[in-house]
Design a protein around this nucleic acid. Structure first.
Lengths: 329, 329
DNA sequence: CGCCCCGATGACAACGTTGTCGGCGAGGAG
DNA sequence: CTCCTCGCCGACAACGTTGTCATCGGGGCG
């Protein structure tokens, strides 16, 4: 900028005025400045500008895995909202590692982002307290975080309830639940929805029908259930990775899966799913964030986005004839 | 920082020294400063620091669609390399819109990123010339860009050649090619590989077996081919979106697909694919980038990553009996 | 003809850091 | 006792912008 000023024979401030299209510059002067800018290939240093102005027009996004379709869809929605607000977006993956999440978030804050959209990996975000006090906005998405901040969730329990009820309506009485580690918020919520659905249908809880743990063990867990005494006639899977693990293990039971996935409709039978809305999640989270950045006050909000049951065949199968008598014995 | 200095009763510079762990500070003084930092919740302003130092420790990534599994996998790899180099990553989607790509890239440059990883949407990147001259590094990934910069590609032609040859080895003589708009670099390259495979097998080119265009029309295009006279006995699809479109349209022909996709192994029959390596693409691109950022000179490099043929059933099917006689008539 | 006002421009400080250099006090050597 | 050295620390400028205020010149008006 200094060079441009020298080249155009004007003061620094005049160049600044031209660049910012501020009034009070003679067209002739402006032309001279613009010519110099063009000639020198000058581009304003946005970092310096933002340092001076205090707003960085930047937000940070931390998700579990940038490569996961669910989260990357969410990221895209956040990006769109950010762009609409003239902001750029840092993004990073926590990989479910709370320490890495912390490092990323603090790195973003050190860059003085205006706000954060966080899919929490760890339960504790106390380290963000000073940042929030310093004016950084934050929104948790998909799972609640360890702070009293705006939160956007999917209707995990209600969705699981609907999915399990769907199976019960098709005559099943013994429905297995294959879920992820119950330490994960969404896994626990979905399990709760499953249990409530059974209870509301007057069915008791049978611990032998529930297997919680890492997806790679889900196939074996289901195999064990099916070869045991009094096996399930239908299965509810708690997330896509588990669904896929079950399918890969060769199982094709009557099935409702939580979370939609590409090509679910092309399998035989098509997989009935409880679809979440990743784009909606991202959009809503980002909109809440920018409300806060714009100065919105008030208590933290908690929004649950509805799920949608998508019947595709696998969830409409009746109990296999010959299996399971009149229910539990 | 000023406040910390006042609180600790030392000069600004001393705080700076403590924060940066520079030598020459008495342990006692350092303790006092650290206490003040803790008490005030001070965090260094990285933007100001980087403004002063000249390096931003930030790179920018522009891909076609953050939500696409192929690109988001790539993004993850880029992110990992960036993190390993202590850099953060801006990311954005061009959505195949050259103008938006330009806006994003220039916005990143205005933030003075150290380098850019670009999946080019448009053919012309002349507008980046001043930025590159100013020292911003750039690497093109997946497609060549309109500048003489490092480029990392998949072996598009060779991969298509291998895939088509695979079909020919299984007895097919009439192989259809369903590809995307040939204005897209990868689509054109894959078409060339297809043609070369046919030529090397002594088969003439039959224009009626080639359909190039948007994925949503691929299903209809194949239907037309199959109901026409002298239909193909096998199909090669030029990318995943086209593959999926074909499958959704209900077709299950002998098939080899360019680009792997989740669950390809679970369909019946499993879909034989020419797998690319998105993580490798991202990793390689990012590594080249950081070499340049570290000061690497020399002419622009162009790297092609090999593809891998993954047989899963659909590509090993023989021509349907009754179809197609001894070849073209 | 003189005054005032206004529009164009410029000088300077400030944003929050870091690099450079100089000062100051203590301790060792002569 | 004096001088030099060295370790600790602080003052100041600079990075590239923008906000504030001053300056300067010309034109309208009394």
């Amino acid at each position: 900028m200094k060079d441009v000023a020298t080249a155009a024979g004007v003061a620094l401030k005049t160049v600044s005025r031209v660049v910012n299209e501020e009034p009070g510059v003679t067209p002739a002067t402006a032309r001279r400045v613009l010519a110099a800018i063009e000639r020198l290939g000058y581009r304003r240093n946005e970092s310096a500008r933002l340092l001076r102005r205090g707003r960085t027009a930047t937000i940070g996004l931390v998700i579990e895995d940038v490569g996961d379709p669910f989260y990357s869809g969410m990221g895209r929605a956040v990006e769109q909202v950010a762009l609409a607000h003239g902001s750029l977006m840092f993004s990073g993956s926590s990989g479910e590692d709370p320490r890495r999440e912390r490092d990323l978030l603090l790195a973003f804050c050190a860059r003085r982002v205006d706000g954060l959209v966080i899919v929490p990996a760890g339960p504790d975000h106390g380290y963000l307290r000073p940042e929030l006090d310093a004016g950084v906005a934050a929104v948790f998405a998909d799972r609640p975080g360890g702070l009293d901040a705006d939160t956007v969730l999917c209707a995990n329990a209600a969705g699981a309830y609907a999915g399990v009820t769907h199976l019960l309506r098709h005559g099943h009485r013994r429905v297995a639940f294959l879920g992820d580690d119950p330490a994960i918020f969404t896994a626990a919520e979905r399990l709760a929805g499953y249990r409530r659905a059974l209870a509301d249908a007057g069915l008791g809880a049978d611990a032998s029908l529930v297997a919680m743990g890492p997806p790679e063990r889900a196939g074996a867990a289901l195999s064990a259930m099916l070869t045991g005494g009094d096996p399930p006639t239908a299965v509810f899977t708690g997330n896509s990775r588990i669904t896929v693990a079950v399918l890969r293990a060769g199982h094709r039971p009557p099935l409702v899966a939580f979370d939609d996935f590409e090509l679910a409709d092309l399998l035989t039978p098509g997989v009935t799913v409880v679809a979440q809305d990743p784009m909606g999640l991202g959009r809503t989270a980002a909109e809440l964030l920018f409300e806060r950045i714009a100065g919105g006050r008030g208590p933290a909000r908690r929004i649950e986005l509805p799920t949608r049951l998508v019947p595709r065949g696998s969830g409409e199968l009746p109990p296999a004839p010959g299996t399971a008598g009149p229910g539990r014995r």
